[in-house]
Design a protein around this nucleic acid. Sequence first.
DNA 1: CCGACTGTCACGCAGCGTGAATGTAG
DNA 2: TCTACATTCACGCTGCGTGACAGTCG
Lengths: 133, 133
Amino acid sequence: VGRRGMHQIGEVADAVGLSLRTIRHYEEVGLVPPSGRTEGGFRLYSDPDVDRLRLVKQMKPLGFTLEEMADILGLLARAGDDADTGDTRDRLAMYASLAEERCTRLRDKLADAQQTATLLRRESEASVPPVRR
Amino acid sequence: VGRRGMHQIGEVADAVGLSLRTIRHYEEVGLVPPSGRTEGGFRLYSDPDVDRLRLVKQMKPLGFTLEEMADILGLLARAGDDADTGDTRDRLAMYASLAEERCTRLRDKLADAQQTATLLRRESEASVPPVRR
DNA sequence: CCGACTGTCACGCAGCGTGAATGTAG
DNA sequence: TCTACATTCACGCTGCGTGACAGTCG
């Protein structure tokens, strides 16, 4: 645990479950920039930064691009800060609908995956097993 | 429906739900080669070919590489044809285990996805709605 | 001063999407 | 002959993995 509640990348990677490369990549594309750096150039992440990374990780299965996620994080931030033309809410609602669709597609994929897993298991155990004993 | 129970790519794409590009790509990498061609060079897929494509599509959520899938399809074919050193079964069993693991990971992802979707929906409907009327 | 950690390039890779220009089927 | 469908390049893109080489922290 670094000074002033700031954490360096390795620590964050362990905590959140993302690779160093991924976290660095998220900075490159402006998705989750560290809120600080040490004199020598080490990235320093605040607790909110870490939360942000966690949210991104959670959001990943929805299949949004990193750019879209950045957009969403922005909207979420502005959604509380008032100054909503309502536009913010509208766009969030669109993303929410999209997310719901992706969820059902994910469910379908899970069903396919399970079917396939079952098939593989069955084929791997078929007609040979009579353990011969 | 083409002659002799053979189907051309567009038909197959519609039936299976894969893009032309994807189907062609699967041939490029040797995953699902069409079992024939017309004089002029049009790909012709037999019904078993189509089943193969369907299986691949079903298997996709498991996250195997195209190469691994080709391997698996080969094993499945040899699993019935006898001549099993038992090796075929063993490898299938390994893939089955892998598949089962991937399934639980998929379930986790689905859970994350749903959580996120719920969050987005809530944020998009929070505290503003008093439709002002 | 050493070892663990981190930094920046920069290339590689899978799995297609997306034209462009051309040929085939019927 | 016309038109819908198909063919082969071949480059583009996302999201990192994977070194290589060098500097920083404690």
